[in-house]
Design a protein around this nucleic acid. Structure first.
Lengths: 249, 249
DNA sequence: CGCCGTTGCATGTCCGGACAATCTGACCTA
DNA sequence: TAGGTCAGATTGTCCGGACATGCAACGGCG
């Protein structure tokens, strides 16, 4: 296998961006654009470090981050290869709004309810608050190209975000949460399916009994506190979850 | 917040297990068992390294692996904290068989079909082979406690695994693939829902039109080659996907 | 011709140190 | 008292080196 010409990387030591990050970004871009052919070797770390004027640990840190993303694979005694990949994104904690927007689907939101109420047992357990605590309940209808896609019901602790209905119609809930200075950390999800009730069918323009895709999600911030519990219902005829996952080895 | 008593760690330098890995395992166990209280600080890396007779990079490597798993969180100028966590597992590439077995559901398999056939366009595209190539087609019915749970249809390149029906009835497909020396790397999944056809209903003991949960998955090995394409249908009344995911920051 | 050990290569692990960036809390000042 | 400032603590980044380990290809031997 012929060696490709050595790629150029531009590193700026005066930048506040870490060197390993600059390198990993440029490597990722090179892979994405095919300048680094799938299956090709990356060249050994020692030489690469010497060529770039970096130390080996720094180069290793850059490479490791791409290995963790699933773009590269290391083999002792062989080298580091670019993976032949249909790889896209490894399942982010994304909002439906952002997903639709990225797909060019012109998302829109209609806020159906926006009020505080006493937490039911299920909601209280998910949010980790006593039953009966006042929580904010938001119900929205998500549209794409003017057609209903999903019915979203979210509960969150009161006072957590500035969630006036007008802002909720313009963007996704996650953006508002992040804008409130909350760092999202992880989420626990359950995905299932069920038949539409008459009321659900009417809201989503589906016949009663039509299959619906359901998702329940509790989201936690970086202190481990639950910040949001959502019960979402999607039209199965219009929407499905797509994602990539890596084997943790 | 009171400091907990310094935990004991036993490190074996003569073991072939890397030191950072020994440490990270013991840390994880301590967190799991609550010996490290959620929210508590871990103590600074320098002292910890000195106490354990390790270098700081080694200790950092151990801590970092737990940060990547979502168990710890680091804050510059503050320290490393144990996250209050409902954390369980961050969505593995697992087989339904193993999932059911772990849940004590006594899984069983009935092999319905097991034959080679010419790949249709969809299957060929998923596996990355020319249309019409001979591929192995496996159809199975998965049962739990004797009741049908899912109908699994898988296609894989011929000769990849030793998949005689008897072994398929005893274990999951993924175990056979791994047993064939293949290292699974990643998978691309699509999860949706649809109504049961008459035939599907009969197979799964559901009425026609009942909502079913569908999953399509293409699995790749560490060379980027597709090793398996599966189309699975689950009884929505009996099964749902549950998983945890981390925000990649 | 085929099997097996050797040998070189590339990554894996580990060390010790240095300085920068950031957060917290205490102190000082208006 | 309220505000800003400064110092200490802690992680983040980066360096240079050393040895271990696993893999593959080569070459020798039967």
């Amino acid at each position: 296998m012929a060696n490709q010409p050595p790629l150029q990387f531009s590193l700026d030591r005066s930048s506040p961006v870490p060197l390993y990050y600059q390198l990993s970004q440029q490597l990722e871009a090179a892979i994405e654009q095919g300048r680094l052919a799938p299956g090709s070797l990356l060249g050994n770390e020692i030489d690469l470090a010497a060529r770039l004027g970096l130390s080996r640990p720094t180069v290793r840190q850059a490479i490791q981050s791409l290995v963790d993303k699933g773009l590269l694979i290391r083999r002792r005694g062989v080298g580091t290869q670019v993976l032949h990949s249909q790889v896209k994104r490894p399942l982010e904690l994304s909002s439906l709004y952002d997903d639709l927007e990225a797909a060019g689907q012109q998302p829109a939101t209609r806020v159906l309810r926006h009020e505080t109420e006493a937490a039911t047992a299920g909601v209280a357990a998910a949010l980790g608050v006593p039953e009966g605590t006042e929580v904010l309940r938001i119900e929205r209808l998500r549209l794409a190209h003017g057609e209903p896609m999903a019915h979203l019901c979210n509960h969150l602790p009161v006072g957590l975000i500035d969630a006036d209905p007008a802002r909720l119609e313009e963007t996704g809930l996650y953006r508002l949460i992040r804008a409130a200075g909350i760092t999202l950390h992880s989420a626990r999800q359950t995905v299932g399916a069920r038949a539409a009730t008459a009321e659900e069918g009417e809201r989503l323009a589906e016949p009663e009994g039509a299959p619906l895709l359901t998702m329940e999600r509790t989201t936690y911030d970086d202190t481990g506190r639950a910040v949001e519990f959502g019960s979402h219902v999607y039209r199965a005829s219009r929407y499905s979850f797509e994602f990539q996952l890596l084997v943790r080895s």
